[in-house]
Computed example of a mutant assay.
Amino acid sequence: MSRYQRTHDGSEQKTTTLELFYDLVFVFAITQVSHFLLEHLTWQGAGQAALVLLVVWWSWNYTTWVTNELDPEAIAVRLLLIGLMLASFLMAIAIPEAFGDRALLFAGAYVTIQIGRHTFLTFVAAGPGTVERERSKRILIWFVVAAVFWIAGGLADGSLRTALWLIGLAIDYGGPLCTFWVPGMKRIPPSAWELEVSHFAERFQLFVILALGESIVVTGATASKEDLSAERLASFAVAFLGTAAMWWVYFNAAAAVAQRRLELATNRTTLARDGYTYLHVLMVAGIIVSAVGDELVIAHPGEVLHGAEVVAVVAGPAIYLLALVLFRLRMAGTLSVKRTLGAAGCIVAGFVGTTVSALALGALVVAILVAVITAETVTGAHRRARGEPSPLEAVG
């Protein structure tokens, strides 16, 4: 057992104020990614923004797994989180020029976060011969190998930098799929990771709230800089309602049902890895793209958008709904037809996007989200009328 491990007394763990303080940096980081995408609204820019988001997510995600086990009230753990927060802040500052003059700062900060965290876990938090040390040792080896490509990419230029960083990213994201297997070392089963479900699920739910909050900030900041005509006020309302609808779709039932299924799962670590570590970043990506679309709609409500601008408006909600479809499929083994149709509807809306105003397109996308919510609400009402259990009650 780790000398800094949380004590398990049977009560549910709650997110601490230190963890919430740590998350503040990632509000800024998500805003940086959103602005990066808006300023580079091309396929290349979208790919670069996706890479940056995956890096930001991976640094936050691992810390969340760590704080699920470690006691944040311990002085050493507090100092670790504050140090990681500083490095994350530096990484976020570098995002606008991550593929330019600040590439080495971006990569160096990320490497410092990953290696620093697991050096602490391996040699400070965990005692010799413990399963915690064996786990952290293997993860640290993977991070060190990936770091070679991250730092090399920071020193390189152009397409070579991108190629090196993609290799580093593939190593980082591939590690959990093989439980960080290292040649010559005994495999560690997924069951070696302990998981306190209520705290773990809450942390990922809060990150979705954090991303939605960034969307609210972007919407407000964009509107406050423009002349508030009736058309622009309408676009502001549409953008807000779109964000509210995305909150509703996730927190109406999906979050609670998934958490309950995770509590009852025998393969808890693997399920948490797939449903939360991998799939939640797609939800965040959808929210970020939606925020960019909202900025465009508010800035140009009466104009007809074209090309990448139309894609930004419709792709965000589509990605978000598809991510939720995959999340339910992985956590519950069932397919959400309504959300799949909603995502398809958003894509279809893109084909008419170049013939109507930005405000009309934004309103159409919000109408699709509301239709999904309405359909699910009606289905729930019919289920209750027949005396059938709700999705959460059906889990047990």
Rank of each mutant, 00 (worst) to 15 (best):
R203F: 03
F204N: 04
F204K: 03
F204L: 09
Q205L: 01
L206I: 11
F207L: 15
V208D: 04
L212N: 02
G213Y: 05
G213H: 06
G213R: 03
S215V: 00
S215T: 04
I216F: 15
I216T: 09
V217Y: 12
V217E: 06
V217F: 15
V217I: 15
T219W: 09
A221M: 11
T222H: 00
S224Q: 11
K225G: 04
K225A: 14
E226Q: 14
E226Y: 05
L228F: 11
A230C: 00
E231M: 12
R232T: 07
L233S: 09
A234L: 13
F236W: 11
A244D: 08
A244E: 10
A244C: 11
A245K: 07
W247M: 07
W248S: 10
Y250D: 02
F251T: 03
F251H: 06
F251W: 10
F251G: 02
A253M: 12
A256R: 13
A256D: 15
A258W: 01
Q259R: 14
Q259S: 15
Q259L: 11
L264G: 01
L264M: 12
A265T: 08
A265V: 09
R268T: 12
R268M: 08
T270R: 14
T270A: 10
D274N: 13
D274P: 00
D274S: 11
G275N: 02
G275P: 01
Y276R: 04
Y276W: 10
T277C: 10
Y278V: 14
Y278A: 08
L279W: 01
L279C: 07
H280A: 07
V281I: 14
V281E: 03
L282Q: 07
L282T: 11
L282V: 13
M283A: 14
M283C: 13
A285E: 02
A285D: 03
A285K: 00
G286W: 01
I287V: 15
I287L: 13
I287A: 06
I288P: 01
I288E: 01
V289P: 07
V289N: 06
S290Q: 13
V292N: 05
G293M: 09
G293Q: 03
G293I: 09
G293W: 06
G293E: 04
E295V: 00
E295I: 00
L296W: 08
L296T: 08
V297K: 05
A299R: 11
A299Q: 09
A299G: 08
G302D: 11
G302F: 05
V304R: 13
V304D: 02
L305E: 05
G307F: 13
A308P: 07
A308I: 10
E309S: 12
V310Q: 05
V313E: 11
V314Q: 01
V314N: 05
P317R: 03
A318N: 07
A318T: 10
Y320P: 01
Y320A: 02
L321G: 05
